[in-house]
Every structure is written in structure tokens, then in C-alpha cells.
Design a protein around this nucleic acid. Sequence first.
DNA 1: TCAAAAGTGTTGTTTCTACACCCATGG
DNA 2: CCATGGGTGTAGAAACAACACTTTTGA
Lengths: 240, 240
Amino acid sequence: MGTALQRTITQLRSEDREFFQIAISVDCVIFGFDKNELKVLLIKSDLEEFNNQWSLLGDLVRPDENLDTASYRVLKHRTGLDDVYLEQVYTFGEVSRHPAGRVISTAYYSLINIKDHQPMLTDNELHWHPVNEIANLAFDHKTILDTCLERLQSKIEEHPIVFNLLPEKFSLRELQNLYEAILGVKMDRRNFRKKFFLMNWLEDMNELEQDVPHRPGKLYRFNAARFSNGKKTQTPVPVL
Amino acid sequence: MGTALQRTITQLRSEDREFFQIAISVDCVIFGFDKNELKVLLIKSDLEEFNNQWSLLGDLVRPDENLDTASYRVLKHRTGLDDVYLEQVYTFGEVSRHPAGRVISTAYYSLINIKDHQPMLTDNELHWHPVNEIANLAFDHKTILDTCLERLQSKIEEHPIVFNLLPEKFSLRELQNLYEAILGVKMDRRNFRKKFFLMNWLEDMNELEQDVPHRPGKLYRFNAARFSNGKKTQTPVPVL
DNA sequence: TCAAAAGTGTTGTTTCTACACCCATGG
DNA sequence: CCATGGGTGTAGAAACAACACTTTTGA
């Protein structure tokens, strides 16, 4: 009862050529945070069918390239950044999702500090768009964006990843603005501070904000070493 | 600055043939629940490299077939069941994950009522294995299984999907055994009952268990209409 | 001195956890 | 009558939500 998948490579190549008609791509939802808005990096589609529409950054996966590697490559190519937070979310495989043929796409999102990336903005095909203002995109990219945003929203409830969107030093106000922008809710300032200090993720830099027209706030940085000291550490013990 | 992905189909086919060297497959982690154990349906691998090892059920995706459709096809083929709960989890794309060549695989898990499937067990290559007793599998299938189990564990914390693993009528004890098997924890009976009645997902059938050597428990069924009447209904209102 | 945001504690509510006794059935 | 699991309520702890005033800075 063997399937094509279970045969050896020689057999696969000779008998099952019909299966090698699907291309695979990665699409990256690159999030940034600026002016208290969550933004995403988009490019003008140069495909005729989607003239003047924006699309996510993506590329075909090479035959000798891991999926993750392909995303890192796209990211590096478009932002110049290495070593960024990247997470696979979902694979979109509708037969008709791409007008150029059968292309299955695996979606990733990444979080970058928008300031680090400024120089690449000279490429005038690339722009940061406020996530809230995006009504539609080329291909099924709006769906991909929505899916990645939902994943991001649930992820930050438990994991300290938003720091990737901020400069090394930040104030609690900036951190709260960021959470509010991602989750689309307003939060109570006092409860927010309490919660974060309890988590024990922050290290006080003993520095103050500069050039603010009001009382300056303290600056903190994320202390990864403290992560896992928070309250969510009691992993349930398997019963068997 | 166009990439291969952005060209038209004619161009893609002629210039980028190198990209059509990757096959895509789906692998299904089919969960069942029997004798108070969570089980998964496996097949003996008939690939030489993995002689005598068990593997998940999967197949190559056809060029004109949606990803989800391919999973349903595999499921139908192996269990005879239609209309089952199915959820995509993750796509495994390591270059070397399959000895027969470059095969990227999208993993799904599904939940079925093991009783509905009994007849197909005549196929002696197919067996239900207790999830806790699986040490390794062919390919990277152990990783896939682990990933799907983790997803299942987090999913059931919020969503009423475990009912797919039970017969239509079940006792609260069975339901609790199922949660305990999936999560690998022991729970307090009184608190468990309280929580479920609060959720309001259950409909009392006014029937009792039969043929039990002790006081019979009431039977319930999942009432989908009541879902969303539970407490988790207050969706946060976006601020913008 | 004014405007603007920083910083700080307490109280009530809800949720979660731990825990023990009587009941109904089959054997 | 015994063994087995069904069925039930309460009290303490922890987490969460709501809320107002004083402080510091720049203009």
C-alpha cells in the first residue's frame, strides 16, 4: 500500500514527475513599530494582475535551501538585517492563490527595530505601512497578514518577544504603547507597570529619557537572563 | 527588483524550471482516544532506510489539489472517515528531512472517534499507538507528532474540540479522562465539573451509563449551539 | 505657573485551588 | 453489605480590574 512519498529517490524522480509542478515560496510579514503604530514592510507588486497593489516580501524557495533559511534570506535582502526574530505561522496552499501557477507559500512574521532599517528606505518600492490602514493587498496577502497578526497577538501574551521591535533602551510608556498597538486595546498604566515588574524581564538602566517636554521616564532594557524567572514557570508535570 | 515569484506564468515555467524540484506532501497526525489513552494512527514505513519503523500517514500533494484537500484525502483513504476535525499546524522544510529527495511537508492533526474507524483495522499495516509509548518514528515524524500534540494541548485550553474524540454521548468522567490524557495532568473532579457546567457546552441527555459496576454517571453531548455562550466571549474591542 | 506625562497603592471582584462526605449501583 | 465511582459546596489564595493624587520636567 505504498504511496509516491514512500518510494526511493530514483523511483520518485522517474515515476512521479507530475508532482514536481508545484513551486514553494516564503512570504514574510515584517513588523516594525514607529510613532506608536504597528507597521508592516510592503513592496509594490510588479505583477500585471496586481498593478499598483502592495504585497508582502517573499521569494521562491531554492531546491537546496531550508524553509527558514529562505525567510532569513528574504529578510536580509530587504532590510539588511541579520539575526532577527522570525516565526513560521501557516502555509497557504490554495490551488488558485497565485496567478502565475501553483505556488504554495509558507508565511513567516518577523519583528525588527524599525530604526535599524532606515537606510534601505531609499528603495522607493519598499514602504512601511500602518497595519491598521491596510485594506487589501495583492494575492492572498491580506489574509496572510491577518493570520500573522493574530499569531503575534497571542504570542506576546506569554512570551517576551516584543522587545525585538524596540531600541535597546526604552521607557515603560513606549513598551505599553507597543502592546496597545499590537493588541488594539487600551491598558491601565498602573496595572501594566505592576505586571511587568512582577515578570522580572526588565533591567533598570538608571538613565532617563532625553528631550521630552515633560517629566522624563526611566529607561529599561530587556534582560533575557531573567526570562523564566517570571511567574509562568511551573510547567505542568506529565502524569505518566 | 522583481523576483521569480512576481513574474507571469509563462516566464515562470520557462526561466525558473530549477524551482520545480521540490515536492510537497501532507502528513496527518490522526489522534484517537481509547481505554483512557491518547493514541495516534501509524503505518509501517515501506521505505528501506526506515525498515520496521512506524510513520505518520501522508502523501504527496497533487498539482491541482489544495493542501487541506490533500489532508482530507489521506484521512478518508486511511480511515474511511469524512467530515473530521482537521487543523494545519506547521510546515517542515529541512532540505535533508526525506531521503528520497526534497520533500517539504505540511503537518495536520485530526481528531476522530476511534470507534467509528474500527473496520479499517483489518489493514494490518495500520495500528493505533499510545502517544506516550512512541519513542521514535521514521523521517522527522517524531518531531511532527510532538509539534502537533503541543498544538492540540494549547488548543483545547480554549476551544471545544475534544468532543471529536468521543462518541456522541459520554460521561463527565470520560471527558475528564480525555483531558487528562491529552494534557498529561491529573485534575480535580469537582473543579473539572464546575468548569464545564459554567462553560455551558454540555447538554444533559437524561440518560445514564449502562453496564458499569458502580453507580452510573449521567450522559451528556456537546451542544455546539451553546458554544460562545461561555465566559470567554468578551472579545477585546480594537481601540482604533 | 502651566501642561504633560511619570510614578505610585489599595480595594473589590473574579478566578483558581484544595479538600471530604454521602449516594447509587452491581456484585 | 461491600466496593466502586458519582455527585456535591465551601473557604482561602491568587490574579485581575478599577481608580486619583503627587512629582518632575520643559516651555
